[in-house]
Design a protein around this nucleic acid. Structure first.
Lengths: 356, 356
DNA sequence: TTGTACGCGTTATCAT
DNA sequence: ATGATAACGCGTACAA
């Protein structure tokens, strides 16, 4: 076959694959109804008799029809796209959130666009405004710390753009949100350490501009008070959820005259850092010092010893958010009650009874 | 204000925000040209005088116009969406790939949809076919091991759907692909260990159905041969890139009569597992045994000692893929030459000169 | 170089 | 319960 013919042939094939345009007219013809009726069936409108409904449905199945999103969007002024905004969370955490959102998007026939953000960027609100405009996003899911980005939220409120927040600090807005019971879980973890006989329990705090950072500290304090143990400020070190901040905090905690016998790091990265420092100082874990984390990140299983930590319902948080958001978009539902999901303790090797 | 009025008012606001419809007609009016001319400017067509072009451009800027994707898609039969398929890679790796693709999508005004897959699923090809149909994606980026999923690729070829592959094994297809120089990098890592005086160097293999798995083994062997060291089958253990497989492989290697003095694990998870086993066996790293990984995963910095590993140009692989794909889609460009990107050794604490 | 008329596939409006 | 017609905003074909 000569080159020219070959090219022409390939173009025909391209055209053929593109031309596979089954529209609602084809379905209507096959089912002997009007296009509008097909549309009614697709959109599950009420006023369709059961008979015609099944008729149309079988025609759709027979032709393998699926609606053209562009046409639908053009008409309805909806994109069927929601945006997921995140900043600086651990990769595994972000992936879990993505999976949770996707699971709902698939059911609802929405698409998700993801958007890594920089919370400290001056232009964040503008950047997102541009995203919304360009991609014509129907709604947004905000994860911490963006859940509390004032300028962005003000913009969304002004423009009446739907959004749902994951674990926000400011809960006075009318937009709905979901969160985990970090406070209780942190208290449970502290209870766990106390039950092992520890009375000197250090904590490495996370970033307090995250709700999780605040709540985990609150849970720690609650537990100590309940057990009538003092809250010793020497045992409280500020971190920011990063490994590096964990290193310096752990160093301060463990090089005191009377170091704590157990350390609760507010996430697994800081716990990993604590373990490293302990090893460097020649301390055995958990014989000399117990270490606990939070998040159940992959690294918690890769450390030696494996890390006692808290599992969070991350995928569930995300899927619930997506569910709320899509309901808002489609049904103009107003604010719904905040949704609280439960964490679970994961006891591994890094915590043990205190050495007598 | 009574409730009904309040509701009506809110609806008006909603309408107002929705009605913010600046179209090419508005731009055309402002610039005193025809809509078609505006379209020409937007699409950078040639036949527009510089004068009218700048005129239109300033009108666009003044009105803050951006084209309606749905209308454009409906007309051009393009979605301006590309899909990114991945399965079971490490979260940090996937996030890097996403960021790389996004960076190009932003420039080209494309959207990305992500799709976690299960390579072993019977219905993978069908699922992706459904995705393509529903979301009307213009093209796909396949990451390992999906890069070599025969059924899926056959489908894409048949339907003439554009795709680009990252690190595929089968390179005989005409579709373009990008890859990293894993083989050379693995050889360099082995060279590094040899230069430290090691002659008994174990390797924990990755999944050989990934190109990376094959290439890293090849590099290891090449390096040994170059140094005229024997390839000892006792020192080669099969793994599958998972932490667990690393544990059992490391155990086998390190409990031999004459264990290797250095172990090259084909990724960081397996290296982390090796470190754990070494610790458990009472071996010091790197004094008793050197350990090296591959990927420069976050965990490599969180271990103690920190892990010597290989950094891969993951974001670059992704952005190059996206670039190739978008060019294919927009310009009907045919296959381009394979693109090879370079890895880099990252020497940290887990490798050291052999103990005399 | 620039403009006019039409159609992409769907849903909304209004009618029956 | 169902159908006819118009319109969403853009790009193509064709004309000027």
């Amino acid at each position: 076959m000569c080159a020219v013919l070959k090219y022409a042939y390939s173009q025909i094939l391209v055209e053929c694959s593109r031309l596979k345009k089954i529209t609602i007219y084809d379905v209507a013809k096959k089912a002997s109804v009007s296009p509008k009726t097909v549309s009614r069936v697709i959109n599950a409108e009420q006023s369709v008799s059961t008979k015609t409904k099944t008729l149309v449905e079988s025609a759709i199945a027979a032709l393998g029809y699926s609606p053209n999103t562009s046409a639908r969007s053009l008409r309805t002024k909806r994109s069927y796209i929601l945006a997921f905004l995140y900043d600086n969370l651990s990769p595994a955490y972000v992936m879990d959130l993505q999976v949770g959102i996707l699971s709902i998007c698939d059911k609802a026939e929405f698409n998700m666009v993801i958007r890594p953000c920089n919370f400290t960027s001056e232009t964040l609100a503008q950047d997102i405004a541009a995203l919304i405009k360009r991609s014509r996003v129907d709604g947004l899911i905000l994860s911490p710390p963006i859940s509390d980005h004032k300028e962005l939220i003000q913009y969304l409120e002004e423009k009446q753009i739907d959004y749902v927040r994951i674990a926000p600090i400011n809960t006075k807005l009318k937009s709905s949100y979901v969160f985990a019971n970090d406070r209780e879980a942190a208290a449970e973890m502290t209870d766990h350490l106390i039950s092992l006989g520890h009375t000197s329990i250090g904590i490495i705090l996370g970033d307090l501009s995250h709700l999780a950072g605040q709540e985990r500290l609150a849970g720690y304090k609650n537990s100590l008070k309940k057990a009538e143990l003092p809250v010793n400020s020497n045992y409280i070190e500020q971190g920011d959820f990063s490994f590096e901040s964990g290193e310096s905090a752990a160093l301060k905690l463990l090089t005191q005259k009377q170091p704590p016998t157990a350390i609760f790091a507010c996430n697994d990265y800081m716990a990993a850092a604590t373990m490293k420092i302990a090893h460097k100082l020649g301390l055995r874990v958990p014989e000399d010092v117990s270490i606990a984390g939070f998040d159940d990140a992959p690294v918690s299983k890769y450390l030696w010893p494996t890390l006692t930590t808290v599992w969070q319902p991350v995928q569930q948080l995300a899927s619930q958010s997506a569910d709320l958001l899509i309901n808002k978009i489609l049904n103009q539902e107003t604010s719904t009650a905040p949704l609280e999901l439960r964490c679970e303790l994961v006891i591994r090797e890094s915590t043990a009874a205190i050495k007598k």
